[in-house]
Amino acid sequence: MAVTTSTESTAIATQTWIWQGFPITYQTQGSEGPAVVMVHGFGASLYHWRKNLPVLASTCRVYALDLIGFGGAAKPAPGPLKPGEQVEYTFETWGQQIVDFCREVVREPAFLVANSIGCIAIMQAAVDNPDIARGVALLNCTLRLLHDRRRATQPWFKRLGAPLLQRILRQKRIGKAFFNQIARAETVRKILLKAYACKDAVTDELVDLLLAPARDAGAAEVFLAFTGYSQGPLPEDLLEALPCPALILWGEDDPWEPIALGREFIKFPQVKEFIPLAGVGHCPQDEAPEQVNPILQEWILGQG
Score class of each variant (00 low, 15 high):
residue 129 N to A: 15
residue 110 A to K: 08
residue 221 E to Y: 06
residue 229 Y to V: 00
residue 188 V to F: 01
residue 31 S to Q: 01
residue 186 E to P: 01
residue 198 C to D: 12
residue 27 Q to C: 06
residue 69 G to H: 01
residue 162 A to N: 11
residue 106 V to W: 05
residue 44 A to R: 03
residue 105 V to G: 02
residue 210 L to T: 02
residue 255 P to N: 11
residue 219 A to H: 04
residue 237 D to K: 00
residue 177 A to N: 10
residue 50 R to P: 03
residue 69 G to T: 05
residue 284 P to C: 09
residue 101 F to Y: 13
residue 51 K to D: 00
residue 70 F to D: 05
residue 116 S to N: 12
residue 60 C to K: 05
residue 167 R to M: 08
residue 74 A to H: 01
residue 97 Q to D: 09
residue 239 L to E: 00
residue 113 V to R: 15
residue 103 R to T: 12
residue 120 I to M: 06
residue 272 K to M: 13
residue 279 G to V: 11
residue 304 G to D: 10
residue 155 P to D: 11
residue 140 N to G: 08
residue 188 V to M: 14
residue 279 G to R: 09
residue 84 G to C: 04
residue 138 L to P: 01
residue 277 L to T: 07
residue 47 Y to G: 01
residue 126 A to V: 06
residue 102 C to I: 12
residue 269 P to F: 04
residue 292 V to C: 12
residue 191 I to E: 02
residue 40 H to K: 00
residue 121 A to S: 15
residue 76 P to Y: 02
residue 49 W to E: 01
residue 101 F to H: 13
residue 90 T to M: 13
residue 300 I to A: 11
residue 197 A to H: 11
residue 25 T to M: 06
residue 39 V to Y: 06
residue 25 T to S: 05
residue 12 I to N: 05
residue 208 D to M: 04
residue 239 L to M: 02
residue 139 L to V: 02
residue 19 W to P: 00
residue 29 Q to I: 08
residue 112 L to G: 07
residue 105 V to E: 08
residue 116 S to L: 09
residue 158 K to F: 13
residue 194 K to V: 11
residue 27 Q to T: 03
residue 214 A to T: 13
residue 208 D to L: 07
residue 157 F to I: 08
residue 156 W to V: 05
residue 265 F to Q: 08
residue 250 W to R: 09
residue 134 R to G: 02
residue 204 D to R: 13
residue 190 K to P: 03
residue 84 G to A: 12
residue 168 I to V: 14
residue 285 Q to N: 15
residue 187 T to N: 13
residue 120 I to P: 03
residue 277 L to N: 04
residue 253 D to F: 07
residue 133 A to R: 10
residue 39 V to M: 03
residue 124 Q to D: 08
residue 281 G to W: 09
residue 142 T to F: 08
residue 8 E to D: 14
residue 241 A to T: 00
residue 47 Y to N: 05
residue 160 L to A: 14
residue 213 P to R: 06
